[in-house]
Computed example of a mutant assay.
Amino acid sequence: MKCIVIGCGSIGLRHSRNFAAAGCEVAVIDQDAVRRDQAAQETGARAFATLDEALAWQPDMAVIAVPHRFHVPLALELLDRVRALLIEKPLTLSANEAKRFQDRAQQSDTLVRVVSNMRFHPGVASLREALDSIGEPHFARAHYGNYLPAMRADGDYRKLYCAHASEGGGVIYDAIHEMDYLCSFFGQATGCAGTFGRIGTLDIDVEDWASIVLTHATGMRSSIHLDYLRNPKSRGCEIVGTQGTILWESLGKAPEACRVTFADSKSRKTLFESAGIDTNQPYLDMAKNFTALVDGGVTDDDRLASVDDGAHVVALAETCKQSLGSSVALGAEFSREASHSCNR
Rank of each mutant, 00 (worst) to 15 (best):
C24A: 11
G252P: 06
A338C: 11
D109H: 15
L74W: 02
E178W: 12
H312D: 12
A75H: 00
N117D: 09
T242D: 15
I87S: 01
A105I: 00
D52Y: 07
A329G: 03
Q281E: 13
A217M: 07
L79S: 08
E249P: 00
R104G: 00
L284F: 12
D285T: 12
E97N: 06
A315W: 01
Q281M: 13
F19Q: 02
D285N: 14
W57S: 05
N18E: 11
P59T: 10
S323Y: 07
D278P: 01
L74I: 13
S267D: 09
I87Q: 00
V171C: 15
K2C: 04
A49N: 06
V294L: 14
G191M: 03
M118K: 09
G219T: 11
H225K: 12
C192Y: 02
G135N: 07
A175V: 09
K321R: 15
G155C: 08
T92N: 05
L127V: 07
R235D: 01
L79C: 08
M151P: 00
D302P: 11
D227M: 08
S339N: 13
D205F: 10
V294W: 06
N231W: 15
Q102V: 00
A49M: 08
S327I: 08
I172S: 11
S10C: 06
I172P: 04
A193R: 14
A292T: 04
S16K: 09
I224N: 08
D60V: 12
L304S: 11
A311P: 06
I246M: 07
M179N: 13
I6C: 01
R152N: 13
I11N: 01
D205M: 12
S274F: 07
I134R: 06
K233I: 01
D301S: 15
A210Q: 09
L148T: 02
P232E: 11
A21V: 08
A329V: 06
E97Q: 14
I4R: 06
S116E: 04
D60P: 06
A254F: 15
G194I: 05
L131G: 03
V298K: 10
V240D: 12
A175E: 13
D154M: 12
L93Y: 08
Q322I: 07
S116I: 12
C258Y: 01
